[in-house]
């Protein structure tokens, strides 16, 4: 068998090292390289990347040095301190608690929940979209009925009910409760693209090459819809920050003694706070706006990197 090929080709084992060296010098840059070039070409996105990475690192590290129970103790002497007084950088709220410290711990909680929720719900949603889209037929029918049933449930109400009947819930249980419901949009989006993608000839070629179905789904089709997956994941990360924030704002998110961006924005429920004590809610609101804007900038860059015709970075 191998002799057969040796007969008809001048290439022999001796040339292997030299030829693969030649090929390496002509190789197309890796995906990571392309994304990095794309960031370098787009200054606002670069700024957004620095903001996001820097902020998340700062919040994760700084919150390690903050004693949360002590921080959440009421201190009547600091009642609605203005920013800058009594050594409080962003002032204090109605309980005399430091807004700056609450912002750091609250951001860590909110971003942690959003990251966890995005990881779980996107992974599940992608699988629940790829598998029915590829197999179609009975598997598709069955999985879509499950999807329809989940869509039918009123999401917000179910979460509120679950939160009230679970006695001791914390950030982790809250993330899991959210994850039950937030995979649906992703799954339908991925399924529709997979339906189109699995009709293409390269899937047929992989089948005739003897590749197994699971390998075709996750190694052939998934990389080809990666731009869709990345955009959907970044955008749902931004959205998921809002999910936790929104429910905490309504009083059904994290327990009140746990600070989060949502509980801080809930300070704006009081008209007095809105007009006079703006420092209790404005920093959290601004932070959410900046985070979500930055994430969507980054998502755009990654989408452009995935599509050769939209690239602005260095040409290869």
């Amino acid at each position: 068998m191998a002799e057969n090929f040796n007969q008809h080709s001048d290439v022999s084992a001796a040339d292997l090292a030299r030829l693969s060296q030649e090929a390496k010098s002509e190789a197309t840059p890796s995906t990571a390289r392309i994304i990095w070039d794309e960031f370098k070409a787009d200054k606002p996105a670069m700024v957004a990347l620095v903001i996001i990475v820097g902020f998340i690192l700062f919040v994760m590290i700084a919150s390690l040095f903050i004693n949360t129970p002590q921080m959440m103790q009421t201190d009547i002497m600091n009642y609605f301190d203005k920013p800058g007084t009594d050594g409080l950088l962003l002032g204090a709220d109605s309980g005399g608690r430091s807004v700056a410290q609450q912002l750091i711990v609250g951001s860590r909680n909110s971003i942690g929940i959003a990251l966890g929720l995005t990881a779980i719900s996107s992974t599940f949603g992608i699988c629940w979209g790829l598998i029915p889209g590829y197999y179609s037929g009975y598997i598709d029918w069955g999985m879509q009925r499950v999807y329809d049933f989940m869509m039918m449930l009123p999401m917000t109400m179910m979460i509120i009910v679950l939160v009230t009947i679970i006695p001791h819930y914390n950030a982790i249980t809250l993330t899991l409760i959210f994850s039950i419901f937030y995979w649906e949009g992703t799954s339908r989006l991925i399924r529709s693209r997979t339906l189109a993608e699995s009709q293409k000839d390269y899937v047929a070629a992989s089948k005739t090459s003897g590749t197994s179905n699971l390998k075709i789904i996750f190694r052939e089709i998934m990389p080809n819809i990666s731009s869709l997956i990345i955009v959907d994941t970044t955008l749902s990360f931004a959205e998921n920050i809002g999910v936790e924030t929104g429910l905490s704002y309504l009083g059904f998110g994290l327990p009140p003694q746990t600070p989060s961006l949502g509980t801080m924005i809930a300070n704006a429920n009081d008209p007095n706070n809105i007009t006079q004590y703006w420092w209790t809610w404005l920093p959290a609101a601004l932070e959410i706006i900046i985070l979500c804007l930055s994430i969507s900038y980054i998502g755009q860059v990654i989408r452009r990197a995935a599509d050769a015709s939209q690239r602005q970075g260095a040409a290869d």
């Binding site: 008809h8 693969s20 030649e22």
Partner: peptide, 18 residues
């Protein structure tokens, strides 16, 4: 090696590899 031989048989250079 087999891939390089196949590329050679169909008349493509080794730098097509990557």
């Amino acid at each position: 090696l087999r891939v390089l031989q196949l590329l050679d048989i169909v008349g493509l250079d080794a730098d097509a590899l990557y």
